[in-house]
Amino acid sequence: MTALFDLKKVAKSFVKGKEKISIFDDLNMTIEEGDFVAIMGPSGSGKTTLLNMLGGVDQPTSGEVWFAGERIDSLSEGNLAKWRANNVGFIFQFYNLMPMLNAARNVELPLLLTKLSGKQRKKNVETALTLVELADRAKHMPSEMSGGQQQRVAIARAIVSDPKLLLCDEPTGDLDRATADEILKTLQLLNEKFNKTIVMVTHDPAAAKYAKRTLHLDKGEFVEEGMAA
């Protein structure tokens, strides 16, 4: 396995009024391609902030973020957007589907940033929806679907353009146990069968068990636990 992510001496702080809140001082980490990492930690420890930096939607205050040999923390706004479109699929706690688009249209969104023809896009959308077992719901609106179904649409959207990396912020935080297990199994499948590298923030130890390893974030430091099942 080659290193997909490399964080070097990453520091991140927010300025709130006159106060400076430092989240990380000196964070170093490596994520290999094909890994499935769960990130846990108390509320406010900076899990989301870290995920945002990995996903190129937030920049470190200092330090370097390397992705597949490319330094992404210094990319321009426009280039970062292109980088995200090519490399990252996001899965959010509240699904973040477009309420006025049906499932298929939601899944198609990332493909609108590619040069694929309408026909090709349709085919890829079908493939992605089939993978999350929602092919029969393609024409349904988000409001007509359960939370678990909406999250699966969101997963289909995240993988439809075949990115290397999936970033999930509490993807099961809003779901019941059984539904959460289904979603986590889907993520595991994506990791094992489709070689997606997954970084997942979660509060739920049961969810973390689906990952290959778990990182505990506390007071700006990582405390690594053993390999999970």
């Binding site: 996903g55 939607v57 706004e77 426009g78 957007a81 292109k82 995200r84 479109a85 090519n86 996001f90 959010f92 509240f94 973040n96 477009m98 309420p99 969104l109 990332p110 940033l113 959207r157």
Partner: peptide, 14 residues
């Protein structure tokens, strides 16, 4: 705002 930000995260331009 959530929709706009989500599209931007996906890679849509400003």
């Amino acid at each position: 705002s959530a929709e706009i930000a989500t599209l931007r995260a996906i890679g849509f331009s400003s």
